[in-house]
């Protein structure tokens, strides 16, 4: 295979592979920026995937399925928000239980649909005009899903909202110093609720992409750690929406390249690579963070109780 063909195909596949990670990682960035860590991403993605598939299968319309997927992720995150924000229980364990519950529930709900292909899955699109471009056309603008472009757009919107609107400022402040926000007369908890729910919505959409577009089917191991990789991605991107794009594409490219080694390695070892790569990415982030002054949101993982320091 020619080297340029290889590069083009790798980048095109990387985009498709990175899409669910982008959605979920973006959601987690928003939630964590408000100070609420949500380890339930894996569970919310599974819930989104199974609900989206079930609804698309019954109604015959993938877009209803996608809406249902987002809603399912949101409902999952509502559970987490209630336990972690209102009840002020441990956010880490609450998210973990959401993952366990989400994986169990989705497997239970999805029993009827295992092994059935979606009759009318999401179609890929070619972007008019841009598809004609040499090299860039086949790389970025042919045979991709709308959801891929939507994820990129969502990242830009999230960046604009977080860093260039008043609402975004409040959200970030709630994550850094909730006491100050409270003292300024603004409410901490509604902001956190909103951030967590948006996070759930995006994770659900990421799950929906898997079952409606990427695979068009449902199986128990569908999410298979992607939610956890998305969590790592949020850290790797240092909680910045635009860096999520870069990081996501880097992840996607590495995985796709790895899968091209299929002739050399046994498949089980190749499947292992995304997880190994995730660990390496976290190590790299930690090493780099030692040199730069980036950090997690100051109040990450801490429930807010007025009057408490």
């Amino acid at each position: 295979m020619d080297i340029d063909v290889l590069v083009v195909a790798t980048i095109a596949r990387a985009l498709a592979f990175a899409t669910p990670l982008l959605w979920a990682a973006l959601g987690e960035v928003i939630a964590e920026r408000s100070g609420v860590v949500n380890l339930g991403v894996e569970g919310m993605m599974a819930l989104g995937a199974v609900t989206g598939f079930a609804v698309a299968f019954t109604t015959g319309d993938v877009w209803w399925g996608l809406a249902a997927a987002g809603l399912a992720g949101m409902l999952g995150s509502l559970l987490h928000a209630f336990v972690a924000i209102t009840l002020r229980a441990d956010a880490y364990v609450s998210g973990l239980s959401l993952t366990m519950l989400g994986l169990g529930l989705s497997a239970l709900i999805g029993r009827a649909w295992v092994g059935r292909p979606l009759p009318d899955p999401m179609r890929t699109i070619d972007v008019p005009w841009l598809r004609e471009l040499p090299l860039l056309g086949p790389m970025l603008f042919q045979g991709q899903y709308v959801l891929t472009y939507a994820a990129l757009l969502a990242a830009v919107v999230a960046w604009a909202m977080l860093f260039h609107t008043r609402g975004g400022l409040v959200l970030r402040s709630v994550g850094e110093n909730p006491t100050a926000v409270d003292a300024a007369g603004l409410h901490v908890r509604p902001v956190r609720y909103a951030a967590v729910l948006i996070g759930g919505l995006l994770a659900g959409i990421g799950g929906g992409y898997l079952s409606l577009a990427y695979r068009p089917s449902w199986g128990e191991g569908m999410v298979n750690g992607l939610g956890w990789i998305a969590l790592a991605l949020a850290i790797f991107a240092m909680w910045h929406p635009l860096r999520v794009i870069v990081a996501g594409l880097l992840f996607g490219a590495c995985f796709t390249l790895a899968f091209r080694l299929q002739t050399v390695f046994p498949p089980e070892l190749l499947t292992m690579l995304p997880y190994v790569f995730t660990v390496l990415a976290l190590v790299f982030t930690a090493w780099r963070r030692g040199r730069l002054a980036f950090g997690a949101p100051e109040a990450l993982g801490r429930a807010y109780l007025r009057g408490e320091r």
Binding site: A89, D90, S94, S97, L98, L101, L103, G104, L105
Partner: peptide, 15 residues
């Protein structure tokens, strides 16, 4: 699995 997740959630929530 569902029961395990549920008990975990309830234990955390009631903590």
């Amino acid at each position: 699995d569902v029961v395990t997740g549920l008990v975990l959630l309830l234990v955390v929530a009631s903590e």
